[in-house]
Simulated scan of single mutants.
Amino acid sequence: MSQSFTVELPPGLALLNANRRVHHHVRATRTRALRAATIEAVAGHRELMAALAAAKPGPLFTRARIVAYLRPARAGRADPANWYPSFKAAVDGLVDAGLLEDDDHTRLIGPDMRLGSRTPGGQIVLVISDATGWTDVAA
């Protein structure tokens, strides 16, 4: 069965941008906040928690694909890949929440970063899909 779930982090979280150099303490604080917000978003998702409970004792997905959307705070041009550090922290939160055993290449495809619609405060949205049957084309 192909499962897909959408996890929305709360708008207004302080995000990490690869183009902006911040002090390592600030980076660590934001990373922890993003991971915690992801765990909380998973815990508040009733259907996802039911699927996770049914999958116990193992992770929900043995292999998954993630499409990650940046919903920017402002209109205009944006490069979603610049927010990779934020997406990475959120994916680590999915692992912490038990959706995946790990986020290495054998278990995860992505995150494929996209630009979403403008949202006041900015927001990250993750769409996690079962990728058990996924086959990569040789590069």
Rank of each mutant, 00 (worst) to 15 (best):
residue 78 A to L: 02
residue 73 A to F: 12
residue 115 L to S: 04
residue 124 I to R: 12
residue 130 D to A: 10
residue 24 H to S: 09
residue 93 G to K: 03
residue 106 T to H: 13
residue 137 V to H: 11
residue 43 A to C: 10
residue 131 A to N: 04
residue 11 P to Q: 00
residue 75 A to C: 04
residue 139 A to Y: 14
residue 138 A to M: 06
residue 62 T to W: 10
residue 50 A to T: 15
residue 130 D to Q: 07
residue 117 S to Y: 05
residue 118 R to C: 13
residue 84 Y to W: 11
residue 110 G to H: 09
residue 36 A to V: 14
residue 9 L to A: 01
residue 26 V to W: 00
residue 129 S to K: 11
residue 88 K to N: 14
residue 72 P to M: 00
residue 62 T to Q: 06
residue 11 P to F: 02
residue 61 F to D: 00
residue 103 D to P: 08
residue 32 R to C: 10
residue 138 A to D: 05
residue 59 P to S: 14
residue 101 E to W: 14
residue 112 D to W: 14
residue 114 R to G: 10
residue 86 S to Y: 10
residue 105 H to C: 12
residue 18 A to F: 02
residue 26 V to N: 04
residue 95 V to H: 02
residue 137 V to K: 12
residue 20 R to T: 08
residue 28 A to N: 11
residue 42 V to K: 02
residue 51 A to L: 05
residue 43 A to P: 11
residue 29 T to A: 11
residue 114 R to M: 13
residue 125 V to Y: 03
residue 136 D to W: 14
residue 51 A to Y: 03
residue 62 T to P: 02
residue 97 A to D: 02
residue 113 M to Y: 13
residue 72 P to A: 01
residue 70 L to Y: 07
residue 129 S to T: 15
residue 25 H to M: 02
residue 105 H to P: 13
residue 15 L to C: 03
residue 63 R to W: 10
residue 88 K to M: 12
residue 8 E to A: 06
residue 18 A to M: 00
residue 117 S to T: 12
residue 100 L to K: 08
residue 34 L to H: 10
residue 117 S to Q: 11
residue 112 D to I: 15
residue 108 L to H: 06
residue 17 N to I: 05
residue 44 G to S: 07
residue 8 E to Q: 09
residue 70 L to F: 09
residue 88 K to L: 14
residue 131 A to S: 03
residue 120 P to D: 01
residue 74 R to C: 03
residue 104 D to Y: 13
residue 9 L to D: 00
residue 1 M to D: 01
residue 58 G to C: 07
residue 109 I to K: 13
residue 44 G to W: 13
residue 10 P to G: 01
residue 107 R to A: 15
residue 41 A to Q: 03
residue 51 A to M: 03
residue 41 A to V: 08
residue 17 N to Y: 06
residue 114 R to V: 13
residue 135 T to N: 09
residue 119 T to A: 07
residue 34 L to N: 07
residue 62 T to S: 08
residue 131 A to D: 01
residue 106 T to P: 02
residue 29 T to I: 08
residue 7 V to F: 01
residue 108 L to Y: 09
residue 54 A to Q: 12
residue 87 F to D: 06
residue 92 D to H: 12
residue 78 A to W: 03
residue 114 R to N: 09
